[in-house]
Amino acid sequence: MNRKQRRLYFVLLGLLALGAAATLVLTAISDSLVYFYTPSDLVSKQQPEGRRMRIGGLVQEHSVIRDGERVAFVVTDLRHSLPVRYAGVLPDLFREGQGVVVEGRLGADGTFQASEVLAKHDEKYMPKDVADALKKSGQWKPPAPAN
């Protein structure tokens, strides 16, 4: 084996190792991505069952049902609604009619099993993703001006 052939083998081996490393990194990144959807997005696009995602919208009025630490409520973008179940302590700012983002998995029965619930910070704040989705759906109501 001459010098040119050895050099070619080393370059090919290096490219193979680089390709394997890139594949591992991309696989790890795609496994940790959590996509954001609105209830309307879930209706229009078929999402794989059991995939981790975030759902954003408003907590529908008169939909919160508490049973100890278990809570069931409905997230809506004012076009479509999605039932959510959560076991745990809700944030202090969680209430009906307010913006919320829930993270978890969509079950086979169409109910979203939340592992985390994120509520807004004050009466003027709404998560950017939720506000953008409401604007896109034409249901955006800008916050009332402060007095």
Score class of each variant (00 low, 15 high):
47 Q>T: 09
47 Q>R: 01
49 E>R: 14
49 E>A: 07
49 E>L: 14
49 E>T: 03
50 G>R: 06
50 G>Y: 07
50 G>A: 03
51 R>P: 00
51 R>W: 12
51 R>V: 15
51 R>L: 13
52 R>W: 08
52 R>P: 04
53 M>N: 10
53 M>V: 13
53 M>W: 12
54 R>F: 00
54 R>P: 00
54 R>S: 11
55 I>H: 08
55 I>Y: 07
57 G>N: 02
57 G>W: 09
57 G>F: 05
57 G>D: 12
57 G>R: 04
58 L>W: 06
58 L>E: 02
60 Q>L: 15
61 E>A: 15
61 E>S: 13
63 S>F: 00
64 V>R: 03
64 V>Q: 00
64 V>M: 11
64 V>D: 01
65 I>A: 14
65 I>T: 09
65 I>P: 00
66 R>A: 09
66 R>S: 13
66 R>G: 06
66 R>D: 14
66 R>T: 12
66 R>I: 11
67 D>C: 00
67 D>M: 13
67 D>N: 15
68 G>H: 10
68 G>E: 10
69 E>Y: 07
69 E>F: 12
70 R>W: 04
70 R>H: 01
70 R>N: 04
70 R>M: 05
70 R>E: 07
71 V>F: 06
71 V>A: 08
71 V>R: 01
71 V>G: 00
73 F>H: 03
73 F>K: 01
73 F>D: 08
75 V>W: 02
75 V>E: 00
76 T>I: 02
77 D>N: 13
79 R>F: 12
80 H>Q: 15
80 H>K: 15
81 S>D: 14
82 L>N: 02
82 L>P: 07
82 L>A: 09
82 L>W: 05
83 P>M: 05
83 P>R: 04
83 P>I: 09
84 V>F: 00
84 V>D: 03
84 V>E: 05
85 R>A: 06
85 R>V: 03
86 Y>Q: 12
86 Y>N: 07
86 Y>P: 10
86 Y>C: 12
87 A>W: 02
87 A>I: 06
89 V>S: 15
90 L>H: 06
91 P>L: 08
92 D>I: 11
93 L>R: 05
93 L>V: 03
94 F>R: 11
95 R>G: 15
95 R>F: 10
95 R>L: 11
96 E>V: 04
96 E>Y: 10
98 Q>D: 07
98 Q>P: 00
99 G>C: 15
100 V>S: 00
101 V>C: 08
101 V>L: 01
101 V>M: 14
101 V>R: 09
102 V>D: 02
102 V>R: 08
103 E>I: 12
104 G>M: 10
105 R>S: 09
105 R>M: 04
105 R>Y: 03
106 L>V: 11
106 L>M: 15
106 L>G: 06
107 G>E: 06
107 G>M: 04
107 G>S: 09
107 G>D: 03
108 A>R: 15
109 D>T: 08
109 D>V: 07
110 G>N: 07
110 G>L: 14
110 G>T: 11
111 T>W: 12
111 T>M: 04
111 T>L: 04
112 F>M: 03
113 Q>K: 13
114 A>Q: 05
